[in-house]
Computed example of a mutant assay.
Amino acid sequence: MATRSARTPAKPAASRIPQLSWRRPEPAPIVLVSGPEEVCAERAIAGLRDYLRAEDPSLEVSDVRADAYAPGTLLGVTSPSLFGEPRLVRVGGVEKCTDEFLAEALSYLAHPQEGATVVLRHTGASVRGKKLLDAIRGGQGGGVEIACAAVKRDSDRYDFAAGEFQAAQRRIAPPALRALTSAFADDLTELAAACQQLIADVDGDITPEIVQRYYGGRVETSAFAVADTAIAGRYGEALVALRHALASGADPVPMVAALASKLRSMARVAGTRESSAQLAARLGMKDWQVDRARRDLVGWSDDQLGMAIQAAARADAEVKGASRDPVFALERLLTVVATRTPFPGGPAPRR
């Protein structure tokens, strides 16, 4: 059972209710699961179900759609049954809720049913239902909130994967964790599944060799692996890796994003003299990311880096619709980065 301390992360300024981690959910009359990261939201809701079922195996579970709501449903599924079993009601689509649901949910907050846990899933994709969210965050209904913020940055994905192994009380070598995170940089759902597969299948510590054995093909052709090879100046290897990745179904958009991300990291640490720990804290990066960016900078001049960043900005627009040939745009960017020279017809770096 989670301890009370799991209820005490810092609350948003606009919220008066406890903020819980999606890894350590606890039931309450109203549980607001907010934010766009579906993997975390699914884990939180499943965790609540398991928590309640462990307390009472007779738990009744009901699913309601707020965007296709039949009047009276909420009261019906939360009302006590003949034998008084606990109830878990999972409400999806609150960001698209109907007027009928909104009215009944607001009314329900004033008198939550005893023994019922109502989970409201709001992705934040719209402001629909804001009145309901404000009421819950203001303390009506005795609720708690589980925020599932988008996992976008490399460091966030790294923390997510590290948390998967920590939660399972398993050890994974940092190089193995970095390889795994890079291999599944484009899809958090796949990264979560890969972590769980390693946890289930592997006895003992998880090493880089194990990650290579399970996901070698994915690691070798990942967007960040292609980016690493290009930034290191190994043009031929980068082209081969790119062709292999594209043949395996890789999309040019995340490939360009990986190159751009690494170039931005290089630019952020270029010319700094702070220690890795100090710089990481100031920039919101991990120590290893600072160290890696500094290693990547070896052999690069400021002008070459500026030229590559401009090329990445152009390629980003082209692969998102500004060009009829996104693969050519990607190959041109890779050529500029790997050779550190302008593509024929492009701007030359200043001397």
Rank of each mutant, 00 (worst) to 15 (best):
A173Q: 13
D205N: 13
Q212R: 14
V327E: 15
I199Q: 02
Q169G: 07
H111T: 15
S276C: 03
S275V: 04
E318P: 07
T98C: 06
D134Y: 04
T272F: 08
R43F: 13
T3Y: 05
A149Y: 14
D251I: 08
R351N: 10
L330G: 03
A225C: 04
R213Y: 02
G249W: 01
G249M: 00
A105L: 00
V89K: 03
L20N: 08
L20M: 12
A167S: 15
S275I: 00
A28Q: 10
M285E: 10
A179K: 12
V298H: 11
A308N: 02
T78Q: 08
V298R: 14
V64L: 14
E220W: 08
G204H: 04
Y235E: 10
R292N: 08
T123K: 10
G72F: 00
D302N: 12
A257S: 13
T73K: 08
A230P: 05
I199Y: 04
T117K: 05
M266Q: 14
Q169H: 15
T8A: 12
A173R: 15
D156C: 00
L82T: 11
R4N: 08
T335I: 03
K320M: 01
F184N: 10
R137A: 11
L242D: 09
L82Q: 14
A238Y: 09
E60L: 15
D156P: 00
R4G: 05
A225D: 03
L180D: 14
D67E: 12
A162T: 12
A313C: 04
P344W: 05
L120T: 06
D251F: 05
A280Q: 07
R243I: 00
K131V: 08
G346S: 15
D50H: 03
C40K: 13
A13H: 04
Y69A: 03
L263N: 13
H111P: 00
Y51L: 11
A116Q: 10
A14F: 12
Y158A: 06
T229A: 15
D316G: 06
D287Y: 04
Q196I: 11
L242A: 13
